[in-house]
């Protein structure tokens, strides 16, 4: 191992991303490496878990341990990993379809369970890998998918509100055009002792070119953050979804597993003896 501290680029693998030119995910990937360098993490102590979708390709682009699993199941896989190996820094990456649609139930329960994971959702309000269908965060009148030619007509899923209602202790929103802010939030999320949820607005220039206009509307939440769930709820519900920052950080410590026992399995055989 090198004596010198690792630089952000040292955390990148040699695998070339499948992402389109102009995709917001490149900036998110860079920000992740910055956060890891800032925290001085070794490559081998980091594991990134993902599901399926454009953003879920991220683990292979990091030179750390990674698991590219199946659609919607990144959080449970990461939960098992972190519970079994609390010494690892476990990051979870994915998109809005993976996290809020097929994996929606796991999102609720990961927030409730409060296992020490840092979950970065690259939200571009569209299914990119399957070539442009409506996701839970797509506006209801978005009519450019052949599956929903009149728009989905569905109310937009509000990830921060759901996370708060489900008990998440760290809720943040960032924008891919502000990579230093993402890095700061990811680092804070990693240092938060429980489940940390970071929604990153990450435009898809291919299927939603209008999202390149997001850079003109994002703004910082003021003041930030709060540890009061009621205040956080107000902020989230009064907001249009384009304010960024750490919205909520609870000061309640996550419940810990009981300390590990050291018993001998063969002693259980005596329970069966007459």
């Amino acid at each position: 191992m090198s004596e010198l501290p690792l630089r952000p680029k040292d955390y990148k693998s040699t695998v070339k991303p499948v992402w389109c030119p102009g995709c917001g995910h490149f900036a998110v990937l860079n920000a992740l490496t910055k956060a890891l360098a800032h925290l001085g993490k070794s490559k081998e102590e980091v594991a990134m878990v993902s599901g399926i979708g454009c953003s879920s390709r991220a683990p292979a682009y990091l030179d750390s341990y990674g698991f590219h699993g199946i659609h919607g199941r990144a959080l449970p896989l990461a939960t098992g990993l972190k519970l079994a190996r609390p010494d690892l820094t476990v990051l979870v990456a994915g998109g809005d379809g993976d996290g809020f649609s097929i994996g929606g139930n796991h999102f609720l329960h990961a927030c409730r369970r409060d296992v020490d994971l840092t979950y970065v959702v690259m939200d571009n309000e569209v299914y990119g890998m399957t070539k442009g269908q409506a996701s839970p965060t797509t506006p209801p009148d978005w009519d450019r998918s052949k599956l929903t030619p009149h728009g989905s007509g569905l109310r937009v899923f509000n990830p921060a509100a759901i996370a708060l209602a489900s008990g998440a202790g760290f809720i943040a929103r960032a924008f891919s055009g502000q990579p230093n802010e993402i890095a700061r939030m990811v680092a804070a999320g990693i240092e938060h002792p429980g489940f940390a949820f970071i929604q990153v607005l990450s435009p898809c220039p291919t299927f939603c070119p209008e999202q390149t206009g997001w850079k003109k509307v994002v703004r910082a939440f003021e003041p930030q953050p709060t540890s009061d769930p009621q205040e956080a709820s107000q902020r989230i519900h009064l907001d249009d979804g384009f304010s960024t920052g750490i919205i909520f950080q609870s000061d309640v410590q996550p419940r810990r597993q009981p300390s590990a026992g050291v018993g001998n399995v063969e002693a259980f055989a005596e329970e069966f003896a007459l």
């Binding site: 698991f67 199946i70 919607g72 199941r73 449970p76 990461a78 939960t79 098992g80 139930n105 329960h109």
Partner: peptide, 18 residues
């Protein structure tokens, strides 16, 4: 776990962790 989808994936994660 919250369901069997979570169960199987959680044990994949734990086992992958050794």
């Amino acid at each position: 776990a919250e369901d069997e989808l979570a169960s199987i994936n959680a044990i994949i994660g734990a086992s992958w962790g050794g």
